[in-house]
């Protein structure tokens, strides 16, 4: 998983690069919670562009980070859902709870300052 923090926007971006299953989810969860507590971001975005596989472990993981982020006063969002990831989030109701955003569009033309 790649992690980026954009200071000005106070946006923490997680680009998940591994397959999301019960085996891999523990490590993702630990890293994400650590970074969320460290930065106390205004926005947390999970990017699924490079996720080639996800099962129900991803539902619990995303809802857990959503709770963690909102508890600390931030907004939690998802981006770049692949077809198979979308199918699972849709049927479990995740997309009714958590908004989907398009960061490329939002930030097109602006220069973002990355910290990590």
């Amino acid at each position: 998983m790649e992690v980026r923090y954009y200071n000005q926007e106070r946006l923490l971006l997680f680009k998940v690069t591994e397959e999301i299953d019960e085996c891999k989810v523990k490590k993702i969860r630990r890293r994400a919670d650590y970074e969320i507590e460290r930065f106390m971001p205004k926005r947390v975005v999970f990017d699924f562009n490079s996720v080639s596989f996800m099962d129900s472990a991803g539902i619990g993981m995303v809802i857990g980070r959503y709770k963690q982020t909102t508890m600390l006063g931030g907004k939690f969002e998802l981006t770049n859902l692949t077809d198979s990831v979308r199918k699972i989030f849709e049927m479990s109701g995740v997309l009714k709870l958590i908004p989907e955003v398009n960061l490329e569009e939002e930030f097109s033309g602006t220069q973002k300052e990355e910290v990590i």
């Binding site: 099962d55 129900s56 539902i59 619990g60 993981m61 809802i63 857990g64 699972i88 049927m91 479990s92």
Partner: peptide
């Protein structure tokens, strides 16, 4: 408590 969603069988079924 372990962040399970209880969707495993529902996914298999659908």
């Amino acid at each position: 408590n372990l962040e399970r969603s209880g969707m495993g069988f529902t996914i298999m079924e659908s």
